[in-house]
Computed example of a mutant assay.
Amino acid sequence: MADPARAAKLADRIKSVVARALETRIKDERLGFVTITDARVTNDLQHATVYYTVFGDEEAKANSVAALEANRGRLRKAIGDNIRMRLTPTLTLVADEVPENAQQVEDLLRAARERDAEVAKLAEGAQYAGGENPYAADEDDEEDASK
């Protein structure tokens, strides 16, 4: 079993090899604007998972996914040609969902800001129900307490 540091270095190398192979080796018309975002390798160095995002509409995404799956063997061959290991790791391609999740978080934050603005607008003309400091003792009460 390899150490995690070696697996992380190999994952970085695989990420760059796959990105370069998509630019130079893979000539598929269906392949759109694909960005390799991350790669992870198991500690035994036998399996690699490559995460990617696709820029475009749903049709472009579907075409790019089909092109990536069709060329997975070529990508694995490129990895084998560029790393010096006894065994080339198996390759799994996974769509990265971070951009979609980030968009959901942005939508939630925007909704919270809108609600905060509504509350601030309601609070502009508000007055205290029992005075500015309702728990402060009156001056008369203080004099009675001191006697």
Rank of each mutant, 00 (worst) to 15 (best):
V65Y: 12
A78L: 09
D28Q: 03
A21K: 05
E114C: 02
F33D: 03
E143S: 12
S64V: 03
A7T: 10
A111N: 05
K121I: 00
Y51F: 13
A39V: 06
A137V: 06
G56A: 08
E100M: 05
R25A: 05
Y135A: 00
A120C: 01
L93E: 12
E100R: 01
R72Y: 01
G32C: 03
E59Q: 12
V41G: 04
A62Y: 08
A111Q: 14
V50M: 09
A8D: 14
G125F: 08
A21S: 10
A11H: 06
D144N: 08
T24A: 15
E29T: 02
A60F: 10
K27W: 08
D28W: 04
N82T: 05
F33I: 02
D57N: 14
A117E: 15
I83C: 00
K15S: 10
N43V: 13
A129N: 05
T53P: 14
P89I: 13
E132H: 03
I26P: 14
E59F: 08
E142S: 01
N82L: 08
G32M: 07
L75Y: 11
K77I: 11
F55Y: 11
D38R: 05
A11N: 06
G73L: 11
A129H: 02
T35F: 13
S64D: 12
A66N: 03
D28A: 07
G80H: 09
A136D: 00
M1N: 08
N71W: 04
E100C: 06
G56P: 07
Q127V: 09
T42S: 15
Y128D: 15
L68C: 05
D96F: 12
A129S: 02
E132M: 01
E69A: 05
L108M: 04
R72C: 04
G80C: 10
A39K: 03
D3Q: 09
E59K: 11
N63G: 08
L87M: 15
S64P: 05
V34N: 11
V50K: 08
R86V: 04
A2W: 04
A95E: 15
N101I: 06
A111R: 13
A123R: 10
E142T: 05
E118M: 06
K147A: 09
L10K: 06
A60S: 12
V105L: 01
A129T: 06
I83T: 10
A66H: 08
Y52Q: 04
V105H: 03
N63V: 06
E143H: 07
T90F: 02
M85C: 00
D116M: 02
K9P: 00
G131S: 02
L68T: 07
E23Y: 14
V41I: 15
I36W: 12
R13E: 13
E139W: 00
A117I: 00
R113S: 14
